[in-house]
Design a protein around this nucleic acid. Sequence first.
DNA 1: GTTAAATTCTTCTATTTATTAGAAGATATG
DNA 2: CATATCTTCTAATAAATAGAAGAATTTAAC
Lengths: 110, 110
Amino acid sequence: MKLLSRQEEIVLLSIWKLKDNAYGVTIREHVSEITGRYWSIGAIYVPLDRLVEKGFIDPIQGEPTARRGGRSKRYYSITEDGMKALSEIKQVQDALWDGFPKLAGERSKV
Amino acid sequence: MKLLSRQEEIVLLSIWKLKDNAYGVTIREHVSEITGRYWSIGAIYVPLDRLVEKGFIDPIQGEPTARRGGRSKRYYSITEDGMKALSEIKQVQDALWDGFPKLAGERSKV
DNA sequence: GTTAAATTCTTCTATTTATTAGAAGATATG
DNA sequence: CATATCTTCTAATAAATAGAAGAATTTAAC
């Protein structure tokens, strides 16, 4: 199986972080925040579609909300295969980064 | 500045790991070992060229070695900019993965 | 209460960039 | 010259990127 691409990793982890509030717009906001970069609309939706196709996330159609423009959202949740793909890339990364010097100002995890 | 792509990250870190023995063939071996996957020749040399072009690594022409076919190798070493790019992607990854459950069988780092 | 305006969210698609594969080429020694 | 090691080249496929357009909804104007 192929490793997750960078975008797939970032989008997939954002969905995991956002729990039950993961849809196009919130994912894009989260990704921008974490990476400190501008992300176009397409840079989110294209990988999202691919992740669905690969079976790593499931789309769930939400209900419209009572606010102007509150059209129904397409929420996403991670599948078991998605979690496996994440675990796999994590394992590779841990091996790769093993021994890399701590960043200046990095705090140790609790 | 753009984030490192997956291949760039993997190749760059392999060069860092291999220290003064990082050239096409050893990099390819290391990457295959770490990822547990087949990597074609091009899958190494193409990102290598791009990393040089971006100024993240410097090529150093080695001497031939006294063995059949021991032609001179092109060694690579990471530049300051390369280290910066690595630190940056690490920071993004740490933020992304923060809170992700430990893998089964994962040992804590010393 | 009908219509227009505004808002939120997604779809679509063309372009650029990156990945992948491996044959071919170059350079070395036996 | 035969064989081994290493790199260059390039064509094909896949992924990233941008953002205009479209769809669905609520609010406001009249």
